[in-house]
Simulated scan of single mutants.
Amino acid sequence: MKRIAMTTAALCLGLPAVAQDFSDGSEAKTWNLAAETPARFEATVVDMLCELTGDCAENCGGGQRQMGLVRAADGVLVYPNKNNQPAFTGAALELAPYCGAEVEVDGLMIEDPELGATNIYLVQKIREVGESEWVTANSWTKKWAEANPDAEGKGPWFRRDPRVNDMIGESGYLGLGLEADEAFIEEWF
């Protein structure tokens, strides 16, 4: 009751509301990122583009669109932009099978007003509401390798990814064109 009164007063005075604490029960492992806090909450998995613009695709785009989490406690749209692997990849792929489902997630929330980071989420575990077993959100690189069998070799996935290499071939490493790349390389290396 006290929290509701404080939030109402803050809104009436034009002050920012007190942020909710979702760390209770979280088993998230730290990444030692600035402004990270453990966060475990229930949410509905949504297609972000659909949620924000009304441009909705069947089955949330089948893993081809960014996924979001509408938090059950307060209706806030949370942006999951990372899974439980070292690279900043995989959240959409990990959440796609849960399109429209009520889930519980455990991970790290990033909130840093100075950087403009609000409701950025690093999902580490997922389970449908009511289920007892968690699914670790770490399948992205395995699924990437299955989808790109000709991209075998050493080094990080993005050095071998056909889409990345096609983009570099068309517009250079800097994205400014092949001539700009040549001039940059000559000047700096």
Results as ranks from 00 to 15, higher is better:
G155S: 11
E133R: 08
N148Y: 10
D21T: 02
T53E: 09
P97D: 07
E186T: 06
K2P: 12
G172E: 02
W31H: 11
F41L: 01
T89Y: 07
W157P: 11
V164D: 04
G68L: 08
A117K: 13
R127M: 07
A101W: 01
E111M: 07
T44W: 02
R71C: 00
D55E: 14
E58A: 14
G175N: 03
K143D: 12
E114N: 09
K143E: 13
S23I: 00
E58T: 13
I120G: 10
T30N: 02
N165S: 11
E114Q: 09
C50A: 11
M1S: 14
Q85G: 05
E94V: 05
L115D: 09
D24L: 03
T136H: 13
I126F: 04
L115F: 11
A34G: 10
A35D: 04
L176P: 00
N138P: 08
G25L: 01
I120M: 13
E179G: 03
I110T: 05
G107L: 00
L178S: 03
R163D: 09
E131M: 09
R159H: 12
E51W: 04
A96P: 01
W140Y: 08
A87S: 12
L178A: 08
V135L: 08
D106S: 01
Y98I: 02
A5E: 13
G177Q: 03
L108E: 00
L95C: 05
E128V: 05
G68T: 03
W31Y: 14
D74Y: 06
K2N: 13
S26A: 00
C12A: 15
K29S: 02
A43G: 04
T53W: 13
D112H: 09
G155W: 06
G177Y: 03
G116F: 02
R71Y: 04
Y79H: 12
C12G: 14
W144E: 07
D181C: 10
G62E: 05
P156N: 14
Y173D: 03
D181F: 12
L77K: 02
E102T: 15
C12I: 15
T8W: 15
D166T: 12
T8S: 14
A5F: 13
M1T: 14
G175T: 01
A137F: 04
V18T: 06
T8I: 15
G63V: 04
P16W: 10
A10W: 06
V78K: 01
E186Q: 07
Y79K: 11
A151R: 05
N119Y: 06
F189K: 12
C99M: 06
L122K: 09
